[in-house]
C-alpha cells in the first residue's frame, strides 16, 4: 500500500490499475489493432518487390530476385521521367495552392460585408466537392478547339488559329496546377481563416493605435499569427508531394503529352495492374513511400533548426 502511495506520480501498472482503465485500454486497443491490420500488416507485401511475384505462386513461393526490380526501375528512362513529373507537379501544386489559399483567406478576412463574405466563401469552396472526372470534363470542354477559351481568344484577336492546349507538353503542368488551384483554394482557405479568427483582437487594436493601416496589420499581425499553421500544414503537405495526383493526369493525359503527364501512380497502374507485374508496381510504391518519409523528416528538421513549429 505504501509503495503505491510513494510512486503515485508514475502509476505502476498493476492489475487494479488495468481494471480501472479497462475502458480506455479497450478503446485504444481498437485503434492499435486497426493500425496494425491496415498500416503494418500489409507492409509484408513489400516482399513482392524483391521477388518475381506471380499470383499463382503467391508471396511465399515466388522466385526471389533481390534488387532486380529496382535495377529495372532505375534504368528505365520512363520511370525517371515519371519521378520528375510527379515531383514537379507536386511542388507546383503545393506552392500554388498554399499561396492562393493564404492570400484568399486574408482577402476574405478583410471583407467588410459579412453576408457577401459568406457568399463568396461558399462559392469558392464548392469546387472542392466536385470529383475530378467532372473537373477534367469541364477543362476538356473549355480548352478544346471549339471550347470557350479558344473562342474568346479568337474573338479578341489574340490568336489566329485555335490553340491545341492539350497537345502542348509545356502547357500540361500549368493546366494541372490551375485545376488544383481552382478546385482547392476555397477549401484550403478555411483552415487559414479559422487560424486568423483565433488571433487575439487586442493585437489588431494595438496595431491600430500604433498607426498601422490595413496593409500594416496584415503584415505585422495576421501573417505572423498564422505562421505556425502555415508551417505545420506545409510540413504535412510535403509528405504528399509525391501524391501529385492520379485522376487528373490520367484523365487529362494523352499520347502527345505522356512524357510530362504520367505520374508514379500511373506508372504503378500500367506496370502493376495492366502488365501484371506486381513486383515492379510494389517497387515503385516503396520508392515513393521512402522518398515521402525522407521529405517529411527533412522538412521537419529544417523547421526544428530554424526554431519554427514542427510535427515531431
Amino acid at each position: 500500500m505504501s509503495k503505491t502511495v510513494a510512486t503515485k506520480k508514475k502509476t505502476v501498472i498493476t492489475r487494479k490499475e488495468l481494471a480501472k482503465q479497462k475502458v480506455l485500454i479497450a478503446w485504444s486497443a481498437v485503434f492499435v489493432i486497426y493500425g496494425f491490420i491496415f498500416c503494418y500488416l500489409p507492409l509484408a507485401g513489400w516482399l513482392m518487390a524483391f521477388e518475381n511475384y506471380k499470383n499463382k505462386t503467391g508471396l511465399f513461393h515466388s522466385q526471389w530476385v533481390g534488387l532486380e526490380k529496382f535495377k529495372f526501375l532505375f534504368s528505365d528512362a520512363t520511370f525517371i521521367k515519371v519521378i520528375r513529373n510527379t515531383f514537379c507537379m507536386g511542388t507546383l501544386n503545393l506552392v500554388f495552392t498554399t499561396l492562393t489559399a493564404i492570400v484568399f483567406a486574408i482577402l476574405l478576412n478583410e471583407f467588410r460585408l459579412l453576408r457577401a463574405k459568406k457568399v463568396v466563401q461558399t462559392i469558392s469552396y464548392l469546387p472542392h466537392f466536385l470529383s475530378w472526372i467532372i473537373v477534367t470534363g469541364i477543362l476538356n470542354d473549355a480548352l478544346s478547339s471549339t471550347g470557350i477559351i479558344n473562342e474568346l481568344l479568337q474573338k479578341f484577336g489574340l490568336v489566329k488559329d485555335t490553340v491545341p492546349f492539350f497537345s502542348i507538353p509545356a502547357l500540361f503542368w500549368p493546366i494541372v496546377t490551375f485545376a488544383h488551384v481552382w478546385k482547392e483554394t476555397g477549401w484550403n482557405a478555411i483552415i487559414y481563416l479559422s487560424a486568423i479568427t483565433s488571433i487575439d483582437p487586442c493585437l489588431y487594436e494595438a496595431a491600430s493605435i500604433d498607426g498601422a493601416g490595413r496593409w500594416g496589420k496584415i503584415k505585422n499581425v495576421t501573417l505572423p499569427g498564422i505562421k505556425p499553421t502555415i508551417i505545420i500544414l506545409l510540413i504535412m503537405n510535403m509528405g504528399n508531394l509525391l501524391n501529385a495526383g492520379f485522376e487528373v493526369q490520367y484523365l487529362l493525359g494523352n499520347g502527345l503529352v505522356k512524357s510530362v503527364s504520367d505520374t508514379i501512380d500511373i506508372y504503378v497502374l500500367t506496370w502493376g495492374i495492366s502488365q501484371n507485374d506486381y513486383s515492379l508496381g510494389t517497387a515503385a510504391g516503396i520508392f515513393k513511400s521512402v522518398v515521402s518519409i525522407a521529405i517529411i523528416v527533412i522538412a521537419n528538421s529544417i523547421a526544428k533548426r530554424t526554431g519554427e513549429e514542427r510535427l515531431f
Binding site: F38, C39, P42, L43, M238, G239, G285, S289, S292, I293
Partner: peptide, 14 residues
C-alpha cells in the same frame, strides 16, 4: 501524412 502514403502502398499490397 506519411501514413497516407504508406497506406496507399499498404492497401495495394494488402
Amino acid at each position: 501524412m506519411k501514413n497516407k502514403t504508406m497506406k496507399k502502398v499498404a492497401a495495394f499490397s494488402m
